[in-house]
Amino acid sequence: MSLATLLVLADGRLPSGGHAHSGGLEAAVAAGRVREVRDVGGFLRGRLQTTGFVSAAFAASACARTGAFMDLDRGLDARTPSPALRRASRAQGRALVRAGRAMWALPDVGREPHHPVALGVLAAAAGLGPLEAAVAAAHGAVSGPASAAVRLLGLDPYAVHSLLAGLAPEIDRIAADAAARADDPVDALPAAGAPLLDIGAELHATWEVRLFAS
């Protein structure tokens, strides 16, 4: 396992379109639920424990068994009731696969896989293991919304990044838990839902003007 390769995969500057998505933060700001740094902290912690945990588990699983990508993809469909979030996940998955093909020799993962499945398959192709795939997924689940919070609310970037540093031990725990379950049957993989992310994504998709795609 190469630590530098993991940094390449988890880097927010990877040209895979991640910066265009706020992970539901833009909708939460518009609803008045996130106004200050403390609210961002609550948002990130909840997102990490729900979407972040599910993404980590599916990334770990896709890394451990790349040939099962279709089953895992359907498993994420069943865990993503919001059509807007399914579209956002597949758009990011497709962009990530395009970036991945330029870097490593990817096995078949379909044209437009869900983002965590794409991430797991890329990790495997890059010689990384399920734990690294899970760390990248869980970290990405909070680092994207954190940078969106700075842009949307003009918050102190130092204060927001200190939230990420504070979450790092939780990211590690979640990734370890996700990796330990990488071989579980798809129905048994985590399915922690976040009702306001689903509802917010559906509202957000109806806006005519928005800064982020999701």
Binding site: G24, A28, A31, R33, V34, D39, G41, G42, F43, L44, R45, G46, R47, L48, Q49, T50, T51, R74, G75, A78, R79, P81, E170, V186, D187, P190, A191, A192, G193, A194, P195, L196, L197
Partner: peptide, 27 residues
């Protein structure tokens, strides 16, 4: 024969972030 909907929800003191703006937002 296929899984249509799979959902878990955890609330309470042992569920970090459950009352944050991503999950229930204090509702």
């Amino acid at each position: 024969g296929s899984t249509l909907h799979r959902h878990e929800l955890a609330v309470g003191p042992r569920a970090p972030g459950w009352s944050g703006a991503a999950v229930l937002g204090g509702a």
